[in-house]
Computed example of a mutant assay.
Amino acid sequence: MVAREASARLASSRPAPAARRRALSRLSMAGEEPSKLTDEQMQKMRLREEVENPFRKVRLFFLYSFVASGTVGFLIAALRTIALTQGIDQGQAFPELAQNIGIDLAAIIGSALLIKRDLAAQNSRLVRMEIGAKLAGLKVRTQVESEEATIPLSAFRRQRGRDKRVAIVVGGADAVAASLSTAIPYSDELDRADIVLVPLSQLEEAVGQKHVALPVMLNSWQEWVDTEVATATGQGFDVLRDGFAVILKKNGRVGTRSKGCPPWNVLVGDVQARVAANMDTTNI
């Protein structure tokens, strides 16, 4: 019944084919290079990472010091051991030298492993921040009457005039079409709940839907899509068959990732429950 009603509403809300073609002609899918961060943006991102992890530099300083100290101690102990094997007395017995070498090696290896883990965590965080920054710069076209505009996703962040949670839907044609059709009965509720849907395929089906923002220049989305598809595939998702959704909170960060169609009734109901309980809805 819901599917039939959704199909009827979709059919009735679709513009004429010529109008759809004109609308889609504004959504260029070629000729634009993927967005790249400027040096200033990269510097700000690194500064933000350092602010959020203020003790990393101190920790790395001590770890590098342990490696340097252990290396010096190892070389001294190794040279004394070689001298001892040549019959030159260095004032230390072989067992003591062997113990010193073992301690120095353990300190070097342990500190090196901790450094590697720390740097890997830093790089992983920087990669996530870079992907997030690029995602914020990807553009969509809103379809609300009198407010149609091409804007970056960052414009939906709170206190920027268009506070919205963004539900990005990725998948095969059937999966995305299902997400679009199941969202139609909740169009008004999604709008009141500050949720906007961004499908990355089946754009013709989405033209004219006020709760949908159409992605502009799809090839510029490719890097982000590739990353998310790799993550979903690694978790055992059949991306083409089931699809998945990534929901961005109003602060621009990823809130949830879900397999299949987003649970529109749950998303809308959660906001309605928060409003009824006088709870905050600006940080969800």
Results as ranks from 00 to 15, higher is better:
M1I: 08
A3K: 07
E5S: 13
L10A: 10
A11K: 09
S12M: 14
S13E: 15
P17S: 04
A18E: 08
A18F: 01
A18K: 04
R20S: 10
R22A: 08
R22Q: 10
L24G: 03
L24V: 07
S25K: 06
L27H: 03
L27I: 00
L27E: 02
S28K: 12
S28W: 01
M29D: 10
A30D: 01
A30M: 02
G31W: 02
P34A: 07
S35E: 04
E40L: 11
Q41E: 15
Q41L: 06
Q43T: 11
M45S: 13
R46H: 15
V51K: 10
V51M: 07
E52N: 09
N53T: 05
F55Y: 07
K57C: 10
V58P: 03
F62N: 09
F62Q: 07
L63S: 03
A68L: 10
V72H: 12
G73V: 01
G73E: 07
L75I: 15
A78R: 14
A83K: 09
I88M: 06
D89E: 15
G91M: 13
P95T: 13
L97E: 01
I101H: 02
G102P: 01
G102Y: 00
L105G: 04
L105N: 01
L105S: 11
I115M: 14
K116N: 12
R117C: 10
N123A: 09
S124W: 02
S124R: 09
R125I: 03
L135N: 05
A136E: 06
G137D: 13
V140D: 00
V140G: 02
R141H: 07
R141K: 15
V144T: 12
V144G: 08
E145C: 06
S146M: 04
E148M: 11
E148D: 09
A149L: 08
T150C: 08
T150L: 04
T150F: 04
I151L: 07
S154F: 02
F156G: 08
Q159G: 06
K164Q: 15
V166W: 00
G171R: 00
D174G: 14
V176Q: 01
P185G: 13
Y186D: 02
Y186L: 09
S187Y: 00
D191L: 14
A193C: 05
P199E: 00
L203F: 03
E204Q: 08
E204I: 05
E205I: 05
A206V: 07
V207G: 02
G208R: 03
H211W: 12
A213R: 00
P215H: 01
P215N: 11
P215Y: 00
P215S: 11
M217A: 09
W221T: 06
D226N: 11
D226V: 07
T227F: 12
A230S: 10
T231C: 03
A232K: 01
D238A: 14
L240G: 08
R241L: 14
D242G: 03
A245Y: 01
I247Q: 02
L248E: 03
L248A: 05
K249E: 12
K249Y: 03
N251V: 00
V254R: 13
S258K: 06
K259W: 05
G260Q: 03
V266L: 13
V275C: 04
A276N: 05
A276I: 00
A276M: 06
A277M: 09
N278E: 08
M279W: 10
D280Y: 06
D280F: 04
T281A: 09
I284K: 01
